[in-house]
């Protein structure tokens, strides 16, 4: 077995203390990456993008082949459904037009995107570890992306930018335990905090008042508090409600609208006044 000389011992001790110090300094909320980090990410980004495209193509091809038989059965089934749906479609068109008229009457406006500039981005990588839940996008500071910008897709809120290089942006997903955001039950306007629990299809709405009127299937949106996320972004719907152990507050299990494991194209909201 190796024996350490006294000099090496002090050297290693110094190194350990130094590392403990740096890891405390470089937590998830720091604003700027150091040059070596930026360099490393920018070098690896095109490689990651390439491998991701190839992986997606291969897995598509494999699933196409293995699903052939199933697809045939489904095809027959769907042909029947098409006729059925055609008749429903004309009925729905009536509803749609009615809806448009009512909307105009009530002067309803969705908050989403009305005051915000957005750019589209593709997911080029996912987090390499089992610890965090992040994705890497192919847009960076060259495209005007900055820290804390919200990320959405047509389903709803995805997360926020936590690190930017020239050509990439790292996004902390809502499902990460560190990605908390202010939430609001749309119907009853009950405020709470949306927290990730590290699972892909589950969030928690916590700090709800004991007498809060929350029910299953109610939709949860962003509250706009905290100044990072705009108000009114769709988050998910409530599937379960429980009283916390202390008996004072309630919490609700929320199923997110966004499928975090299937993100491909997303939008970065770049017009946030704080981030610019």
């Amino acid at each position: 077995m190796a024996r350490l000389p006294k000099k090496s011992f002090w050297g290693i001790l110094l190194l350990v203390v130094l590392l403990l110090f740096t890891m405390k300094l470089t937590d998830i909320n720091r604003t700027n990456l150091t040059p070596p980090e930026v360099l490393l990410r920018d070098i690896l980004a095109p490689l990651q993008g390439g491998v991701m495209v190839v992986t997606a193509k291969v897995s598509d091809a494999v699933s196409n082949i293995s699903n052939y038989k199933e697809t045939n059965i489904k095809y027959e089934e769907l042909k029947g459904q098409v006729d059925n749906l055609r008749s429903k479609l004309s009925q729905l068109e009536e509803y749609r037009q009615e809806n448009v008229r009512l909307r105009r009457l009530l002067n309803l406006q969705t908050n989403l995107n009305s005051d915000w500039d957005s750019i589209a981005a593709s997911v080029i990588a996912r987090d390499a570890s089992n610890w965090y839940h992040t994705i890497t996008l192919n847009r960076g500071s060259n495209d005007g992306v900055g820290q804390n910008m919200p990320i959405i897709n047509s389903e709803g809120l995805i997360g926020r930018v936590i690190a930017v290089t020239n050509n990439t942006a790292e996004v902390l997903l809502l499902m990460d335990p560190e990605g908390a955001v202010g939430g609001l039950v749309q119907e009853t306007r009950t405020p709470g905090i949306i927290e990730g629990v590290g699972q892909e299809q589950q969030l928690m709405l916590v700090h709800l008042a004991h007498n809060a009127e929350v029910e299953e299937n109610q939709v949860v949106i962003t509250s706009g508090l905290g100044d990072i996320f705009p108000k009114g972004l769709r988050i998910g719907y409530i599937t379960n409600i429980a009283v916390e152990a202390n008996g004072l507050v309630k919490k609700a299990v929320v199923k997110p609208f966004v499928e975090f494991d299937r993100l491909e194209e997303v939008f970065i909201l770049t017009g946030h006044k704080e981030a610019k």
Partner: peptide
């Protein structure tokens, strides 16, 4: 350390 720089979070944790 290289892994930490790549993750860019808590630099030193994987190195240690």
């Amino acid at each position: 350390l290289v892994e930490d720089l790549f993750f860019a979070k808590y630099i030193g944790i994987n190195a240690l």
